[in-house]
Design a protein around this nucleic acid. Structure first.
Length: 438
DNA sequence: TCTGGGGTCCTAGGACCC
DNA sequence: TCTGGGGTCCTAGGACCC
C-alpha cells in the first residue's frame, strides 16, 4: 500500500489533443469532439471553452459557431483515444513507483519514497509525454488524492486562464512545497464545486450554507459534515485537511456490472428492429464480459423514449435471471430478447435501449475441466465456440461473426448510430496510417 | 430535425425473520 | 382498547465520477 504524496497526471482536453496530433491544422482553433450519434460535445479545446461551449452541450445548439467562429466538430474516435491513452499511461508511470489508471486520460501516481525535487521530476515527465506522444497534460501533487486532484485543476486553470492563479503553478502544481499561507490563499481562491467528490447538488447545498470556497469547506468539522451530508463528504473534508483517506488502487478491480447501451440513429417503434438492436447490444456486452473473464447471473434490458421530446413517455426495464451464470452470447442474447419482448409496448417512439449484465462472478471453469453438470460437455463446447468467435472478431474486425438475430441488412438497420465526422484509426489500422509526403 | 455512455457507492425503506 | 425490537437482505433512487 502506498501512502502520500500523490500526483495526478491528467491530459488537457484529451480527445481533442489526440485529434490534433494527427491533424496539426486543428491547433489554435476551436474544436469539439461529439458523443455517439454526434449528439453533444464531450471534449472541447481551450478555444471552444472560451466560446462558452459547455461540457455536454448539444451539437445543434452550438453548430452556429462553425460558421461564426470556425468551430470544427469531430465524431468520437475511441479506438484512437484508447491507443493514445496506453502510450501516455506508460510514460506517466515513470513518475513514481505506483500507478492507478483512473480514467482514459488520467492516472494517480504514488510518490511514496521518491527522492529529490518532485516538482522538477514532474516537469520532466510532463515534457516527455508531450514530446513522445504529442499530448499536453497537467500534473498536480499533494499529500492526499483529493489535494492532488485539486492541484491538477489549478495547474490546468493557471495555464488556460492567465491571472487566475500564480503563473508558476501552470502545468505542474505541487501543493506540498507551499507555505500554509500560500496554500490557504489558493484554497480560498477556488470554488467549492471544483473539489473531487463535490458535484452540482452538494455544491448548491454548501453555498446555501455560506460555504463557497475550498478553504471554507476544508475548515468544517468532519463530524458535522457526516451528520449533515454523508460519510463520503466527510472523507473529502478530511482529505482536504491533509489526512489521506483514499488509497491507491494499483490493480484494477473487476467490474461489478457491464453495460452496453446506445441511443438509436433513428427513432424505433416496431418490435423487430428493437429486437435486432437488443441482440447486438447483448452480444457486445457478452464480449466485454468474456474479456474480463467473468460470468453474469442476471441480464437487465431496458428501453425508453426521449426525455426531451414531447409525446407519450415510456421507460421500462426488466431483469432476466440466467439459468446458470454464463458468458455465452447465445444465452445472454436469449435472455435479453425475451426480456424486451416482455416489456415491449407498441406505439412509442423509442430513442434508446440497453443491456446490462449484473451479478458478475469470476469464470472459474477452466477449459477441459470435468463438469459434472448433465450438460457439461455442451457447456465446454460453447466455451470453445465463444473463443473462436472472439478470435475472429478481434482479428478481422468487430461484427465479422455475429448472432443472426442482430440482423444482416445494414440498410434496414437504421437504429445504428450515426457518426459522420470520424477521423481514421491512425494508430491501430495499417490502412489508416498517416503518410508523410516529401 | 438535432440532447452520450459507463461506472461506483451510499442511503432509505420495505420485506422478512426471530 | 390494545399492536416490540432488532437484525439482515434487497432494491430503487440519488449523487458522484470520467
Amino acid at each position: 500500500m502506498s501512502a502520500g504524496p500523490f500526483a495526478l497526471v491528467d491530459a488537457s482536453n484529451f480527445y481533442v489533443s489526440c485529434e490534433r496530433v494527427f491533424r496539426p491544422s486543428l491547433n489554435g482553433i476551436p474544436v469539439v469532439v461529439l458523443s455517439s450519434n454526434d449528439g453533444c460535445a464531450i471534449a472541447r479545446s481551450n478555444e471552444a471553452k472560451a466560446l462558452g461551449i459547455k461540457m455536454g452541450a448539444p451539437w445543434f445548439e452550438i453548430k452556429h459557431f462553425a460558421e461564426s467562429a470556425g468551430l470544427v466538430a469531430l465524431s468520437a474516435n475511441f479506438t484512437l483515444y484508447g491507443d493514445m491513452s496506453d502510450r501516455m499511461m506508460s510514460l506517466a508511470a515513470g513518475l513514481g513507483p505506483a500507478q492507478e489508471i483512473y480514467s482514459i486520460d488520467e492516472s494517480f501516481i504514488g510518490l511514496d519514497g521518491v527522492r529529490g525535487d518532485l516538482t522538477d521530476r514532474a516537469r520532466k515527465v510532463r515534457n516527455r509525454i508531450l514530446v513522445w506522444t504529442g499530448i499536453p497534460c497537467g500534473i498536480g501533487i499533494g499529500p492526499t488524492k483529493t489535494l492532488a486532484k485539486l492541484a491538477n485543476y489549478i495547474s490546468k486553470t493557471a495555464e488556460r486562464k492567465p491571472g487566475s492563479y500564480p503563473a508558476e503553478l501552470a502545468q505542474v502544481c505541487n501543493l506540498g512545497t507551499l507555505s500554509k499561507e500560500d496554500l490557504d490563499a489558493l484554497l480560498a481562491a477556488t470554488a467549492v464545486g471544483e473539489v473531487w467528490g463535490v458535484g452540482r447538488r452538494i455544491a448548491e447545498q454548501l453555498e446555501e450554507g455560506g460555504i463557497r470556497t475550498v478553504l471554507e469547506l476544508a475548515r468544517l468539522d468532519p463530524a458535522t459534515v457526516r451528520r449533515r451530508w454523508s460519510v463520503v463528504l466527510e472523507r473529502t473534508v478530511r482529505e482536504l485537511q491533509g489526512m489521506s483517506c483514499v488509497q491507491m488502487e494499483d490493480v484494477p478491480a473487476p467490474k461489478k456490472e457491464i453495460a452496453y447501451t446506445r441511443s438509436f440513429g433513428r427513432l424505433v417503434t416496431d418490435l423487430e428492429p428493437l429486437l435486432e438492436a437488443v441482440s447486438e447490444y447483448a452480444s457486445r456486452a457478452a464480449e466485454k464480459l468474456r474479456k474480463q473473464g467473468s460470468v453474469a447471473g442476471n441480464v437487465l434490458v431496458f428501453a425508453h423514449t426521449s426525455p426531451y421530446r414531447p409525446g407519450p413517455k415510456y421507460h421500462r426495464s426488466v431483469v432476466v435471471p440466467l439459468r446458470r451464470p454464463s458468458a455465452d452470447t447465445a444465452a445472454i442474447v436469449h435472455a435479453a430478447t425475451a426480456g424486451i419482448q416482455q416489456i415491449y409496448q407498441p406505439g412509442f417512439d423509442l430513442i434508446k435501449a440497453g443491456v446490462m449484465l449484473l451479478d458478475l462472478a469470476p469464470d472459474h471453469r477452466m477449459q477441459g475441466e470435468l463438469d459434472l453438470e448433465d450438460d457439461g460437455a455442451a457447456v465446454a463446447e460453447r466455451g470453445r465456440l465463444m473463443k473462436v468467435m472472439d478470435g475472429l472478431n478481434n482479428r478481422y474486425g468487430k461484427g465479422t461473426v455475429h448472432v443472426a438475430s442482430s440482423g444482416f441488412d445494414d440498410a434496414h438497420r437504421a437504429w445504428r448510430m450515426r457518426q459522420e465526422r470520424r477521423t481514421p484509426h491512425y494508430t491501430t489500422n495499417i490502412l489508416d496510417i498517416p503518410i508523410a509526403r516529401a
